[in-house]
Design a protein around this nucleic acid. Structure first.
Length: 350
RNA sequence: UGGGGCGUAGCCAAGUGGUAAGGCAACGGGUUUUGGUCCCGUCAUCCGGGGGUUCGAAUCCCUCCGCCCCAG
């Protein structure tokens, strides 16, 4: 009995090749386009229509059934609304982590299973081995950072065929198969929403923000910002403050609508030797404390060795680091790995 | 209105007779399935205004305007 796999097809090369590979491997493949966001914001065209068409084209080329799941409502409620709330609270969320947790590996998975699928598949660069999540072969494209909140159960029902390939290989396969998406540029920006600058998106969704003071490391007023929630820790551009050295955001006071900056790259406000995490999620249960771990505080950052892991409360964890890390930002994810590329989980920086 | 100093792009700032460094910001591009970082590129026909000296001035002289400091 051939397994029925529903492949999430975004209209990009990666998911196109995912579907192609699975078909080659003998699965009964169905392509699914998730329609999660169709609105265009302030002059930025939302690419959903082209993405949908590209996904459909590839499905036709591969001669596989194609479906559309409309998750717009849920994406809005479970991803976008949460993201906006986080920004409003002065934090910097990662909507794509949420999207994987709530939409792709929960809603999509369940819908597909209800629809008759045995498994789902995605074009993520990550490896799934025995229900565990490992970094991709192509460390340059590894996407485990975005996947650390997915449940072991969901992972056990998922195939990620790209994990053992490199991006150039995927491009090359797409070309050989003449897939419509072979030369399509990689997508960027918030998954499904597109490349709109975040500040503009926030203003469009939350309304115009109130301007406020920018204070430097000496307590001096150096400029005016466009609304404290629009900035994030470590940020350099968008302050419109010039003269001498670049300024980096070191902190925000949301209540007073102030943001704090520094010109000193060694400013201690900009570096952390320990990180507190909340909303901890362990994919296969908490580590037993016998192996060494490292953490990534942002996508594509070099992992930093963890020298101490202390439980502060039921769902609070304090990590002590082997070296200082720059611009640790509340709301962002800290993803924890065992030294052998095994992604074990992580939490949200508080 | 006695003395001293200053006025170069949005900001900081070199250049004191030979035909406008550099940095920040901004803008554009690249990297990146979040934000951010980072990288590359662009950005003063003109040096507060006017006049003069000179083959040639942002650089010297005169004058006007503006700002700062000290002294009143």
């Amino acid at each position: 009995m051939t397994k029925k796999v529903y492949v999430g097809m975004s209209g990009g090369v990666d998911s196109s090749v995912t579907a192609a590979l699975l078909k080659q491997q003998g699965y009964s493949v169905t392509g699914v386009y998730m329609k999660n966001w169709t609105a265009s914001v302030a002059g930025y065209s939302c690419s959903w229509k082209t993405d949908f068409q590209d996904a459909k084209r590839v499905a036709v080329q591969l001669d596989i059934p194609f479906k559309v799941y409309d998750f717009e409502l849920q994406y809005r409620q479970q991803v976008v609304a949460v993201m906006l709330e986080e920004y409003r609270a002065g934090r910097t969320p990662n909507p794509d982590v949420l999207c994987n947790q709530e939409i792709k590996f929960k809603l999509f998975l369940q819908t597909a299973l209800d629809d008759g699928a045995d498994m789902i598949a995605t074009g993520h660069y990550a490896r799934l081995v025995g229900g565990k999540l490992f970094r991709a072969q192509d460390s340059n494209k590894d996407q485990t950072y975005f996947l650390y909140r997915v449940s072991a159960k969901a992972l056990s029902q998922t195939i990620m065929p790209l994990g053992t390939y490199t991006k150039p290989q995927i491009r090359s396969i797409a070309k050989h198969l003449n897939l419509a998406t072979a030369d399509k540029k990689d997508s960027q920006g918030i998954c499904f929403i597109g490349e709109i600058p975040i500040a503009e998106f926030l203003v469009a969704e939350l309304g115009p923000q109130t301007t406020g003071p920018i204070i430097d490391q000496n307590g001096k007023l150096v400029g005016t910002h466009d609304g404290a929630i629009l900035y994030t820790i470590g940020q350099r551009h968008g302050l419109h403050v010039g003269g001498g050295l670049p300024y980096y955001v070191t902190g925000k006071d949301i209540m007073r609508n102030k943001i704090f900056v520094t010109t000193d790259l060694q400013d201690e406000q900009l570096w952390r030797h320990s990180i507190d995490l909340g909303d901890i999620h362990w994919i296969n249960g908490p580590p037993d404390g016998t192996s060494r771990h490292e953490v990534c505080v942002r996508y594509r950052s070099a992992p930093v060795a963890i020298t101490g892991m202390r439980k502060l409360s039921r769902n609070r964890l304090r990590l002590t680091l082997a070296e200082d890390v720059r611009a640790v930002t509340a709301g962002q994810s800290a993803v924890i790995y065992e030294a052998d590329n095994h992604c074990v989980g992580g939490g949200l920086i508080v």
